[in-house]
């Protein structure tokens, strides 16, 4: 698996898109820090961008890489390697290279702007960690879709739909749910609803660490009580981890039965 991972990673790290992605974050980091001149202000803006962009890029890259490397995958399949290692290797290769672009792209400007002297270092780290999680989650999800649909156009379409669902539609349904039960105590519902979507979970985790959490008011108190406790922190990271593991497990299962 490590061999496949290594070469997938090599391949992607040299691709133009990795550079563009990396340079985008690098530019974003520097521009925001230049505009705000304040790490904490920049953190919140970057959060908005990370929560939308990492899932989108992860989804698109995952699907693209799968379809792009299909023939090569066939070549690998004819070699004496276990199937699961090929797919696991490719998946981790894609996700790692994207995560690295994010990590370095944002890390470099923040470190040069004196992040280590700033009290924002933990918030910033949390931001990067959730960004990395989201990358792994959405690459895994999109790999699942690509494995299920041999038709590229279908695969792409569903991948975009998947992103749209988690980034937008889910929140819409969630909001409707909250509004229709607004006569009942719904802070638990709000808690559960925002934990089940990895994008929402990441957003809430980060917001609670920032000053802006005061806007959460009473609901925020319930959230803080939960996420502030070690159980809450552990269970939310367990949830994020589950979002990585379950789709990965399905990649392995799906790939085992698939014809090429």
């Amino acid at each position: 698996m490590l061999k496949i991972l290594k070469y997938s990673f090599y391949d992607l790290m040299r691709s133009r898109w990795s550079y563009i992605y990396f340079l985008f974050y690098l530019a974003l980091g520097f521009v925001l820090l230049f505009l705000f001149n304040d790490v904490s202000q920049a953190v919140i803006t970057i959060m908005n961008i990370i929560l939308v962009l990492t899932p989108l890029i992860g989804t698109i890259f995952g699907v693209m890489y799968y379809y792009d490397s299909r023939e090569f995958t066939e070549l690998l399949l004819s070699q004496p390697i276990k199937r699961r290692n090929i797919f696991l290797g490719q998946y981790i290769g894609v996700a790692t290279s994207l995560a690295l672009s994010l990590f370095l792209g944002l890390g470099i400007p923040f470190v040069t702007y004196g992040l280590f002297q700033s009290s924002e270092i933990w918030n910033f780290s949390l931001l990067l960690v959730t960004g990395v999680f989201l990358t792994f989650i959405f690459v895994a999800l999109s790999y699942n879709l690509a494995l299920s649909y041999d038709n590229k156009i279908k695969g792409f379409g569903f991948a975009i739909l998947l992103w749209l669902f988690f980034a937008v539609i889910y929140d819409g349904l969630f909001l409707i749910l909250l509004l229709s039960f607004s006569d009942y105590p719904i802070d638990k519902l709000a808690l559960i609803g925002s934990s089940l979507n990895p994008i929402d979970l990441s957003r809430v985790l980060i917001l609670l660490k920032l000053d802006i959490s005061a806007l959460f008011g009473y609901t925020g108190a319930v959230f803080k009580q939960f996420f502030g406790s070690s159980t809450g922190m552990i269970s939310s990271f367990a949830l994020l981890l589950a979002w990585v593991i379950l789709p990965t497990w399905r990649i392995l299962r799906k790939s085992k039965r698939k014809d090429f």
Binding site: M47, L51, Y170, L178, A190, G193, L215, F216
Partner: peptide, 11 residues
Amino acid sequence: PETIVLLRSLF
């Protein structure tokens, strides 16, 4: 008030 949990979401 509970809908504040959607603060800063794309939706």
